[in-house]
Design a binder for these strands. Structure first.
Length: 373
DNA sequence: AACGCGGGGAG
DNA sequence: CTCCCAGCGTT
């Protein structure tokens, strides 16, 4: 057979003789992106990647995944780690509870299952941090178990492919799509690849705005495409407006050291370090607020002596302006009143502690200002 | 079922 | 700017 006769199997062709699950797999084979966890999909690597990928883009995750795997190459290494070191490797990735649950699950897997991840979704679900998505992803990708994954990409692809008007933010829609996909996943004969292919399609082709239908392997199967409703689907309830907060923090110096506090595990940004501070009350200046908050949180009496930075930062549910005030300690002895722990450290030690993004910007300003002083 | 939780990239 | 993303645990 000459290669010239192989047109029928050309990757670019849409292959109408195949049903959509098979066509999806064929598209994925030629269009998938390279990812570090795809080269060797053993359970541990699949698990770490899937947790990092929760609400986080592939390009963002890749460098974190490489560093994490280099330091914790297997579940035993992770289980033996210090919580603060796990958080430090997670620094900047967000949703820090993921890191704590990952660590907790690793310890549990070592303690109860000899370091081996369970195969069945129901067993995986009992581990910390394993919800429907992660359990299905690990079971299907690492073990070939036929369980559909339904993430944001799949919800969007499914709504368009099946022409569904249901609000994709509703859990009932999520459940219905899972069951509607199950026969297609089984027909594909390759659950792990089917699941990854559907997500990859949502990420590369069936994107939220202006989907690239002309290159879609499912363009002739898609109800939204046929009815010219790709712009209307999926239906999604509008989200609430984000309030804005004004925060002042005190960067307190005493004998060449500065004061940082560790946030409690049950708080937002739990386990990460920060400079003491809080909301600026009406009528207060940032300096007054910083002095008051430092007193309330650390029992220290301080006086303001400059401003390091105004940092703007957006979280999912609110935005914030943080004013970082340079402070000199007048008197008092530190007592942690809201932080899990307070610590005096040299500026050179800041890099050893995990800080949230907004605080990292403050640290940059400190280094810049104190270096030039 | 609704809500809170980070951060960054795309349009 | 706004929207969205390989979700989970709590209430």
């Amino acid at each position: 057979m000459s290669s010239r006769t192989h047109k029928a199997t050309s990757p670019r062709r849409n292959r109408p003789e195949l049903k959509w699950p098979a066509r999806l797999l064929a598209w994925f084979e030629t269009s998938k992106r390279e990812m570090p966890w795809r080269t060797e999909p053993v359970p541990y690597r699949v698990w770490i990647s899937e947790v990092m990928l929760q609400q986080t883009r592939v390009e963002t995750v890749i460098p974190y995944f490489e560093r994490f795997l280099a330091r914790f190459p297997d579940v035993h290494a992770l289980a033996a780690a210090q919580p603060q070191e796990v958080l430090k490797l997670w620094e900047g990735l967000g949703y820090y509870r993921r890191a704590r649950m990952l660590h907790a699950a690793a310890k549990e897997i070592v303690a109860t299952n000899d370091g081996k991840l369970p195969r069945e979704p129901e067993a995986l679900r009992r581990l910390p941090g394993f919800g429907p998505y992660t359990a299905a992803a690990v079971a299907s990708i690492a073990y070939g178990v036929a369980e559909p994954v339904v993430d944001g990409n799949v919800l969007r692809v499914g709504a368009r492919l099946f022409g569904s008007d249901e609000d994709i933010t509703k859990s009932a829609t999520h459940t219905a799509l899972t069951e509607r996909l199950r026969p297609a996943l089984e027909a594909s004969g390759d659950p792990g690849t089917f699941n990854q292919a559907l997500m990859e399609l949502g990420s590369l082709v069936c994107v939220p705005r202006e989907p690239r239908c002309d290159t879609c392997p499912l363009r002739n199967d898609c109800v939204a495409r046929r009815e010219k409703r790709t712009a209307e689907l999926p239906v999604k309830a509008p989200r609430k407006a984000r309030p804005h907060k004004h925060i002042a923090v005190g960067v307190c110096w005493r004998r060449g050291k500065l004061l940082i506090g560790r946030r409690r595990d049950d708080q937002m940004l739990g386990g990460l370090w920060e400079f003491p501070g809080g909301k600026i009350e009406s009528g207060e200046s940032p300096e007054q607020a910083a002095v008051r908050e430092v007193a309330e949180e650390t029992a220290l009496t301080v006086e303001p002596c400059g401003t390091y930075a105004h940092v703007e930062h957006g979280y999912t549910h609110f935005t914030v302006t943080i004013t970082a005030i340079r402070c000199r300690v007048l008197k008092g002895r530190t007592r942690a009143r809201s932080a899990a722990e307070l610590r005096w450290i040299h500026p050179s030690e800041l890099a050893e502690y995990p800080f949230p993004r907004a605080n990292q910007r403050i640290i940059e300003a400190i280094h810049k200002q104190e270096l030039h002083a």
